[in-house]
Design a protein around this nucleic acid. Structure first.
Lengths: 210, 210
DNA sequence: TAGATTGTTAATCGATTAACAATC
DNA sequence: TAGATTGTTAATCGATTAACAATC
């Protein structure tokens, strides 16, 4: 299925999801594009354009039903069948530990199968209830369990070497906190980079120059 | 100083910085826009347009001097004087701890003055060598030390209340990992959101639908 | 001088915003 | 029917890419 939605639209979906969840929790039943726009800090036009990428969820003259809209967006974000993406975590340092607590939430659409670390002292232990394996067992594990997403939380130094060893293991996407630029090694795979250092630097630029 | 660079350009600066640092470390002295574009996965046109937002760093017919270019970009990102942005961390859980290790690197242009937590058991301890204060002391601390950046690593529940208590304490920017949308409370302040949950959801959408 | 590569202007592309007919 | 609000097309805006003169 080729998505009609552009990346900017996709990136806004979680925000719609959050605000609509709040509304549902507050017992609000319907909402107009202009009201949603006001809350989200955007325009009514954009809200309607966004939703019409996926099909008309609204009712002319009335607005959008919060429950319906939330359900549709949930399906888009997490899959209609509720099937979860089998996922592994590589690197269980402070960042990996913090990140894994996001992954194990049941609203995310991911299922964290296992964690991996190269530190022998950590192998056999757990992070957030997930067993830590040795990175040496990565290939065997992937052949057996077929994870489709890998979350990389390894320090700068090891990232390049690790990335090459991941080629051919069948991953369809990465959530990449490592410093290494995965898109070189994985041209056909979806990479979501969360480069904390980069984000910190751009903030610095704007604080000094804007 | 009103910046001529747009946000997309600013967000690319750290990546230029990283690749140019690698080049310098590998002893490479000069680079052309086309070679830099190839490495970065963009076009030579974009590279030249980007650099010309700040002034011509290159030499026609020759290319760019790696050292010069790196120095100019460093000045843009970290300030020419090397003066660091006084910063505090709020929330010293797993994420706050991981994030603080970025902040204390001396290449980032930030100076982490103190950390704050509402958990009395943590007050008086340290994260990465930085003392943890009680959030009750926040106002007094800001009046005395005038931090300009606050890094928010608090869980969803407390974020809204905390945000309102930060108004008027003189912050110029936030690096926001919390779930709360700060732009409502701080319309004139630069907010860099790192919403891990949102980023995870958009990755999920793309993996299922692209 | 010839070749290379920048700086800069023009063209293209895509995303956002505006407008309005359709319809509840 | 009148008012409201969507769905959708058209206009605008901004960012990226292409082109080329300037110049090392």
């Amino acid at each position: 299925m080729q998505s009609k939605a552009s990346l900017p639209v996709i990136r806004r979906l979680p925000k719609y999801y959050r605000y609509l969840s709040n509304m549902k929790n507050n017992g609000i039943k319907k909402v107009s594009s202009s009201e949603l726009a006001r809350i989200m800090g955007t325009t009514a036009s954009q809200v309607r354009q966004d939703f019409n990428c996926f099909g008309g969820f609204g009712q002319q003259g009335i607005g959008y039903n919060v429950d319906t809209l939330l359900h549709e967006i949930s399906c888009l974000l997490f899959g209609d069948e509720g099937e979860k993406l089998p996922t592994i975590l590589i690197g269980t340092g402070r960042l990996g530990t913090a990140v894994s607590s996001f992954l194990i939430r049941d609203t995310n659409g991911y299922k964290l199968l296992a964690a991996f670390d190269k530190n022998p002292a950590l192998v056999g232990q757990t992070v957030n209830g997930i067993p830590i394996h040795s990175v040496d067992d990565l290939e065997e594990f992937c052949a057996r369990e077929h994870p489709v997403v890998a979350v990389l939380c390894v320090p700068r130094d090891g990232a390049g070497e690790l990335a090459s060893s991941l080629v051919g293991l069948g991953f369809k996407g990465f959530w990449n906190f490592s410093h290494y630029d995965l898109s070189v090694a994985f041209p056909d795979v979806i990479v979501e980079n969360v480069h904390l250092g980069d984000s910190l630097m751009s903030l610095g630029y704007r604080l000094r120059n804007e």
